[in-house]
Amino acid sequence: MSFILTTALERSANRSLPEPLSGAVTTALEHLRKGCFQRSLCLVVSATSVASGLEVGYEHYKGSYSNPVMYTPVALSAALAGAGLLGFFSGVAARTLLRWISVITLADGIIGFFFHIRGVARKPGGWKLPVTNIVMGPPIFAPLLFGTSAYLGLMASYLRREEDLHSVAGRVHNAISEFAPGKADWRTNLRYGRFQKHLSSVTVLWAFFSGFEALYSHYKANFRYKAQWSPVLLTPLVMAAGIGAVKSRRIANTALPAASALALADGAIGFYYHVRGITRRPGGVKKPLYNTLYGPPVFAPLLFAACGFLGLMASLLRREKK
């Protein structure tokens, strides 16, 4: 019998934790496994949208908003944060408003990726000097990473509400879903928490994007601190675990959560170091706006942590129906 992470966590919680806490842990794991965590993910979407909106807002401010399209991610991040909050209170808002704003935000990230590529190409030497112009030009994968919260919002729009898990209709639908023959479409898989392989694939892509961003961002700082190598070294580990998780349930329940937990912790530690870097600039906290603008990108490590979050979520979900 193959190792299942959620089953192992439930047994560990029942053995080691007092009753109220162990019950909460097992209930949360069941919600994740059955795809009934729409409200919770809506709150995550709202919080991540605020962080990514602030990050892109001050990065584009440094670019003087020279192109009107630079305002779009700032506006969309606010809209997505609001839609996430509405989705927490209303299932209708989650299935409609949150879904469409997420789609528009994802499209905006793809368009922004094109503009960043064009910005690199327009620098002196263009793509004939790829290393120099990628390092000194606009952060090439940042617009795609901006779509992280939008991707989570789109995912949340297809999930079920937490209260649906133990409702009569929810139990009937669960039984039908479990025993229905044939291959389910992606919407059904997502609705019932069966998208482990898909989310593992997304983790691989996001790890590559955020790892590349960390590489050239820290390269510009000449890797002054040894800790700056950590996201660069963890990136191939997370990518390998994600690729393995697509092919193997055992890897998805063992190597992927381990690598993802390291990435999540590394992103949190990196956030602390970036905040510390800002406070150590001349003027420190007395000049918060100036030092945030021209210090290390304060929320960038959280984008790497988001890869760990995606990987951990994938490890707790069920496999797609074949």
Rank of each mutant, 00 (worst) to 15 (best):
E19T: 10
G211A: 07
N253L: 02
A252G: 02
L129A: 13
K128G: 15
L98Y: 01
Y61N: 08
R161F: 01
S210C: 07
G112R: 01
Q196Y: 06
Y65L: 08
A156P: 01
P18R: 11
P181C: 08
M136F: 10
H173C: 11
L97T: 11
M1P: 08
G82M: 09
K287P: 01
A314I: 04
S64L: 04
A241H: 13
S90M: 11
A75N: 05
L312S: 00
G119L: 06
N67S: 15
F271W: 08
P288T: 12
S49N: 04
L21Y: 14
M155D: 04
R280Q: 12
T6Y: 05
P130C: 03
A241D: 11
V120W: 02
L80E: 04
V74C: 10
A24Y: 12
T188N: 09
V172Y: 04
A268S: 13
T279Y: 07
R276H: 11
N253P: 00
L233E: 02
M1D: 14
V285M: 14
F114D: 10
V50H: 09
K183T: 14
L317Y: 06
T7I: 12
K183R: 15
L256T: 07
L317I: 07
T148E: 03
S90W: 10
P143H: 03
A93M: 13
G87S: 07
I4H: 11
K322T: 03
C307V: 12
S201R: 07
C307S: 15
L234N: 02
G87L: 01
S22L: 10
T27M: 10
S167F: 02
E19I: 07
P143I: 02
G63F: 08
P297T: 00
H116N: 09
R191I: 01
R194Q: 15
S12L: 15
Y192T: 11
G147W: 00
F114K: 13
A221K: 15
N14E: 15
T203V: 07
G109P: 05
R280H: 14
L76Q: 06
P297Q: 03
V135P: 01
R280K: 14
E320I: 12
V50F: 11
S12F: 14
T26H: 05
I278M: 13
F309W: 07
F304K: 11
G277L: 00
G57D: 03
F113W: 14
E162G: 06
S217N: 08
K321W: 10
P124A: 09
A28H: 03
K247M: 12
C42V: 06
C36V: 04
K287Q: 15
G267W: 01
Y192M: 14
V246M: 11
H166C: 03
